[in-house]
Simulated scan of single mutants.
Amino acid sequence: MKKTIATLAAAALALCAAGAGAQQPARFGNTQLTAGMHLIQAEVAQTDAQRQQGLMFREKMQNNHGMVFVFDQPTSQCMWMKNTLLPLSVAFIDLEGKIVNIEDMKPQTLDSHCSTKPVKYALEMNLGWFKQKNIKPGSAIGGLPGLPK
């Protein structure tokens, strides 16, 4: 009987581990972006699953690192911070790579932070990064996926 219980327990653990593997966060590619003289190491979220996952559950992010969200076509976009532990700033970026507007976002909130015009990209960085680097609406972001280098 003990052997059967141990076998059942091992099988249950294996099923749980397999189920946990299915819940792994989306994997992201990386790219290097530029904002004036500043280099940004950005993870790229370009599928629905990647955009939904975003930076959820991250506890820290290195300086000059971020995540660029690539949308299928330019439209009005909104971001929120559900399950996101880091305070972030998001720059909404148009089809030409120009920042339309920048919004600061508090962690773990459902507040919507939206672009003021149709955008193709959103770039999330640590809170205050754009302000510290004097990057404002109208500034260009280089190296965005799909734009000429």
Rank of each mutant, 00 (worst) to 15 (best):
Q62W: 00
V68M: 05
E59V: 00
P118F: 12
V119K: 01
P107N: 02
K82R: 14
E103S: 13
P107G: 02
G97E: 14
K117S: 14
G36A: 02
A18F: 07
K98N: 10
M105K: 03
G21F: 09
T47L: 09
A20W: 15
T34V: 01
G54F: 06
D48G: 13
L95Y: 05
E103N: 12
K60E: 14
R27V: 09
D48F: 09
M37F: 02
A11H: 00
C78S: 14
T31N: 03
Q73Y: 03
V70C: 08
Q52K: 14
S76E: 09
M79I: 12
L88T: 08
Q53V: 11
S115N: 07
Q24F: 08
D104V: 01
I93E: 11
Q24E: 11
C78G: 13
T116H: 11
H38C: 00
A22W: 08
D111L: 14
I93L: 12
L86Q: 00
E59A: 01
Q53S: 12
A42N: 00
L15I: 11
Y121D: 05
A20K: 06
M81D: 04
S89D: 10
K106F: 07
N101C: 11
S112G: 01
F57M: 04
N30Y: 10
M105H: 05
L88G: 11
M37A: 10
K120V: 04
V100K: 00
M61V: 10
D94E: 12
A45S: 11
L15M: 11
W80E: 01
L33E: 10
Q46A: 05
R58H: 09
G36V: 02
L88C: 07
A18R: 03
P107H: 06
T34Q: 09
E124S: 12
V68G: 04
A49W: 00
Q32M: 07
T109W: 04
Q46F: 09
Q46W: 13
D48M: 05
T84M: 10
N101V: 01
L39S: 15
H65C: 02
R51Y: 15
A22D: 06
W80L: 08
W80F: 10
S112W: 10
L33T: 07
Q24R: 15
M105C: 07
P107V: 07
F69C: 02
M56G: 01
P74Y: 05
W80N: 02
G97M: 13
T34W: 03
L88R: 12
A20T: 09
P74G: 09
I40H: 06
D94M: 11
E96Q: 15
S115H: 10
V44Q: 05
N64W: 04
K117Q: 15
W80Y: 11
N30I: 06
W80D: 00
L33H: 04
S89V: 01
K117L: 15
P74W: 06
T34K: 11
Q46I: 03
C114R: 10
D72G: 15
I40V: 14
C78N: 13
P107Y: 08
R51K: 15
T31E: 05
M79A: 12
A122E: 04
S76I: 12
R27C: 01
L15E: 03
F71H: 09
H65N: 04
N30E: 10
Y121H: 06
H65L: 01
M61N: 09
C16D: 01
L123P: 13
L88E: 08
